[in-house]
Design a protein around this nucleic acid. Structure first.
Lengths: 351, 351
DNA sequence: AAGTGGAATGAAAACGTTTACATTCAACTT
DNA sequence: AAGTTGAATGTAAACGTTTTCATTCCACTT
């Protein structure tokens, strides 16, 4: 029914090979036939069939992105970064999200075979065993997990540990001793790393602060609950560091409700630097993750792996984070970058 | 190199036809051979090639989404809604964004041929002429533009006019007479409709308010600039209605800076109900657009068109909006729904 | 015992491209 | 004038599936 390359060939009075050559801009086609073919194609509204094309060329000009979710500021930024980098290279984006269980993720992964040239993978299921069974063999892949890589794929991660460490240190340096922490979900690797950064930075204060380490799930409501609990404790903590900004937001609501002033009565800090952080009153001190850049880098890495399939790409890369000090933690404004293997090697790793 | 259905057939000692049948769960294959085939497939890590499959089946299990942007709260929500509905139907999502010019959008559109079963289209270029030339013929498509449909495709739009009308009326009903408006980009159809809603609601007040109708571009900074200008006018407006929430946010910054209290000294309202609106101080009165639902409905419409290609699907559908009255406009809290052809027909159209 | 029916299986065509190879043909060489 | 080149074009194979159609085979019927 739909018009194919054969119809164009017939209309232009040439073979399909010539049509293909003309359409793909090969040089070995005469000016005259080129014109005839192009006109026929235009006239018939011909558009090449992508499936047929990629079947033979083994290229889809598409990269797949398997993400745990599409919701919220974090993923919005992430996708934006990925899309930006993909567009710059003329690549399309096949996204897929929220795989409740490993089987679902596996099915999606398998369905990608033949549809994408490479894969961006961000899912808790992505351990070595899972990957070796479900990843289409020889499909270039970049892991964007917090956990350890599987040793055979490129692997990007955010410096959660360093960021949390730096923020905790910052609070300590400003005289706070009873520093509470609101954790993320226990099975979330980013959350685990942030907790680890907090604990390691505490040093001698660790024992004293342990009672102030509250459970949370990255949602605003859990921040609210944690804050209520913290307000009831004696002695009350002097500062609260939430493992992400949304929970910090929940804290703030609880503090406002209770008439507790931030930062005068209690200091507050978050993690992520979502757009809202800047607009809260008081504006939220937080750890900035350059999420869009994270996405861009991941895609760049992937494209590299696609274009040079024979090189080894298993190296790890850690995205640096940045301390963003606003008013909610009660001290002077400053912004310091600290990093893993940072893109700006002149700036050292944060102590 | 990669393992194909032939390899599986050879390993299992059967023909490719049987493998295909077994893998696709057809019933006409013996228990014994089924087992043999499945084991061979597992052992070889076989995954079917999507391109080859969709070439012959003419189905891709994928829908394409052409959006003007992927940035910000609005598109995050929109994609979430689309993805939610797609996942529920086992469909993948091919997204594409930010087409600076019509040619780029056209190229993307054409590249979709053979890669998607249907198209969700949200772009300013989507007028009838553009579509008839660049849309793969017979590809089910749903337009998500604010402008008028092209008469031959399903068409969804948000009730921008009704929402702006209702908010303006609300402000008038509460005694404000000098009501300023901050416009969106002139070439943006949503913005045009919101402006129209504002103007029509004003009625007798229109002439008086005209000087308070300021330019804007949907970005925070333009809201800030507009607010500065408005503060300098005499008499000063009593209320400011920004065509989107981000500009309202900019206004608020300007007001805070100038020591002008909201809502005591001046009322403020926005449009969109982005997540941040609820958390601003004072919390922002706005017009809620159920964006995720908008995306879901669009996808549902599209799937319907795909499954029943012979029916006519050109009907228009208008997504209702909802007035969300918080504290920034200085009157009692209430929430009233008003609609075009609303999903809840018991509630009438807003006056 | 021959025929019938139906289920399981295989052979091959089809999907719409790209491309290796073969062919044609005109313009040069000698 | 015959041979040689090289560019333009055509023919057909290939990509990896699904599906139509034909074949085989076995268990029935008569």
């Amino acid at each position: 029914m739909a018009v194919t390359i054969k119809d164009v060939a017939k209309a232009a009075g040439v073979s399909v090979a010539s049509v293909s050559r003309a359409l793909n801009g090969h040089d070995n086609v005469t000016r005259d036939t080129y014109e005839r073919i192009m006109q026929a194609a235009r006239q018939l509204h011909y558009m090449p069939n992508g499936a047929a094309r990629s079947l033979i060329t083994r290229r889809t000009q598409t990269i797949g992105a398997l993400l745990p979710d599409l919701h919220g500021a974090f993923f919005s930024e992430l996708i934006r970064g990925i899309d930006l980098a993909a567009r710059a290279r003329g690549l399309h984006l096949l996204v897929s999200s929220s795989h409740d269980n490993a089987d679902e993720a596996a099915a999606t992964l398998r369905a990608m075979r033949g549809r994408v040239d490479g894969l961006l993978l961000m899912t808790p299921h992505a351990n070595a065993g899972f990957l070796s069974v479900n990843l289409p063999p020889a499909l270039p892949t970049v892991l964007m997990n917090a956990g350890s890589g599987d040793g055979s794929h490129a692997w990007l991660t955010v410096d959660n540990h360093g960021g949390a460490h730096a923020m905790t240190r910052h609070l300590m340096d400003n005289g706070y001793r009873r520093i509470a922490f609101i954790r993320g979900p226990d099975n979330n690797l980013d959350a685990q790393e942030r907790l680890r950064g907090y604990r390691e930075a505490l040093g001698d204060l660790a024992a004293e602060c342990e009672p102030y380490c509250m459970p949370g799930d990255f949602l605003e409501s859990s921040g609210y609950r944690a804050a209520r609990a913290l307000l009831g404790m004696t002695p009350r903590p002097q500062a609260v560091f939430a493992a992400n900004d949304m929970m910090a937001l929940g804290c703030l609501s609880a503090f406002n409700e209770a008439g507790v002033k931030v930062p005068a009565d209690i200091a507050l800090a978050g993690f992520d630097d979502i757009p809202m952080a800047r607009f809260m009153t008081p504006s939220l001190s937080t750890v900035r993750v350059r999420i869009a850049e994270f996405g861009e880098r991941a895609l760049a890495r992937l494209v590299d792996a696609i274009e040079h399939p024979d090189d080894v790409h298993a190296a790890e890369e850690v995205m640096p984070t940045e301390l963003v000090i606003r008013t909610s933690c009660g001290v002077g404004t400053t912004s310091s970058r600290h990093a893993g293997n940072a893109p700006t090697p002149t700036e050292g790793r944060h102590p």
